[in-house]
Every structure is written in C-alpha cells, then in structure tokens.
C-alpha cells in the first residue's frame, strides 16, 4: 500500500503527462472521425455508386480490422509505400479511421430509427428533401445516436492505450517504461488503471445523463 502511494507520488506527473497525451489522441480522433462518420453514414446508403462503395470500404475495414492492426499498418506499414508519419500522426490517423467507421454505423442506425411517418409528414407538407434531413432526420437521428456515440468515445479513450505499441508517449507507454526501469510493475499499472477509470467512469455517467435529457420529448 505504501509502495502504491510512493509510486503515485513519484511518478504521478509522468503518468499525468501520459494521460494528457491519451486524452489529446482521443479528442483529435473524435474531432476528425465524427464528421467523417456522419459523411459515411449517408455514404453507405447513397445512390451514387462511387460514394457508396468508398464509404462501405472504409466502414467495413474500419470495423472489421482491430484497431491494433490499423495502428501498426499506419506506423510500420505506410513507410513501405514511402509515407512516413510521426507516431502521434499515425496513431491519430488509425483511430480516426476506427472512429469514423463505428460512428458511421451508429449514426446511420440513429437516422433510420426516426419514424418514417415523420419523414412522410414533412414530404406531405411540401418540405424539400434537404429540409427534411436538416430539420427532422439529422437532429433526431443524432439525438438517438448520441448516447451510443458517447459510449464509443469511452471505448476509444481506452483503446488509445494500444498506441503504446507505436511509441506514442501516452499513459500506457509511460506506465510501461516506468515499470521496466523500476520493476514496480504492479503499483504502476494499478495507478495507470485508476487513471483510466477516473476518466471512463464519470464519462459513462455523463452519457447516461445525456440519454435521459435527450429522450425526454421522444
């Protein structure tokens, strides 16, 4: 126990620095991945074949391939094609892909659960297809998808720990390097785990609250 407190005090700043990198990676991947996901959510059901095929490719590969494979592909694989990215950039690219792929399906599911009667209602009123999307389908679809998107964000935050394998100095890799230089693996991983939980658990509460708030009129 004493050991745990000592480790926490001594290596706290390093671990918190790693946590900051983890959070940055999460936020960047969400900021880039969610808009692309929204685009793909239209793409996978689009009439335009090129748009549809490209969307389906990225969504299916992004969901089918483990995030670890995508990470390694971007960092170790792309240099073979003469594209060399920094560890942070390649991790960000891989997790953006994962985010876009999963969120596309979550958003599409949300949009499809908007009752067709409301869409008919807006057509019968003479509202254009675009207005129907803008005022009826997207606001409600995103509202329906938001709790699961927030759940996904928590999973993504935890998945950033995989970025230690491509030398991103995030929380997991900081913990690992402290462990390997001090052999205090047990306390340092416990502290790292607690730090992950300290973010994930309140974020989950937040998503439950958001769900309640948003579904109040539906």
């Amino acid at each position: 126990m004493n050991n745990l407190v000592d480790v926490a005090i001594e290596y706290g700043p390093t671990l918190l620095g790693g946590l900051k990198v983890s959070l940055t990676l999460t936020i960047l991947s969400l900021a880039l991945g969610l808009p692309i996901g929204l685009l793909f959510s239209f793409g996978v059901t689009a009439k335009n074949k090129a748009f549809r095929y490209i969307s389906v490719f990225f969504v299916e590969v992004g969901r089918g391939a483990p995030a670890l494979v995508l990470l390694q592909l971007m960092y170790y694989g792309l240099p073979n094609a003469n594209i060399t990215l920094s560890s942070m950039a390649s991790a960000c690219l891989a997790l953006t892909w994962t985010t876009a792929a999963y969120s596309a399906e979550l958003i599409r599911g949300g949009m499809q659960s908007v009752p067709s009667g409301e869409i008919e209602g807006s057509h019968a009123l003479g509202m254009s297809y675009r207005d129907c999307l803008r005022f009826v389908v997207i606001p409600q679809g995103l509202r329906i998808a938001l709790p699961s998107l927030m759940g996904f964000a928590v999973l993504l935050f935890q998945a950033t720990s995989l970025a230690y394998s491509v030398a991103v100095p995030e929380l997991m890799s900081q913990a690992y390097s402290i462990g390997s230089s001090t052999f205090q693996y047990l306390p340092v991983f416990i502290v790292a785990g607690l730090l992950y939980a300290a973010i994930s658990i309140p974020a989950t509460w937040l998503s439950v609250g958001a769900e309640r708030l948003l579904s109040r009129h539906l």
């Binding site: 209602g121 019968a124 539906l218």
Partner: peptide, 15 residues
Amino acid sequence: RSAGMVFQHFNLFPH
C-alpha cells in the same frame, strides 16, 4: 402545397 394532409398517427415532429 395545395393539398394539406392529416395522418392517422399525426406524424408531428416530437423534438
């Protein structure tokens, strides 16, 4: 626009 429609299930926008 010239025809107003009223449905069995109202089809209001709940949000």
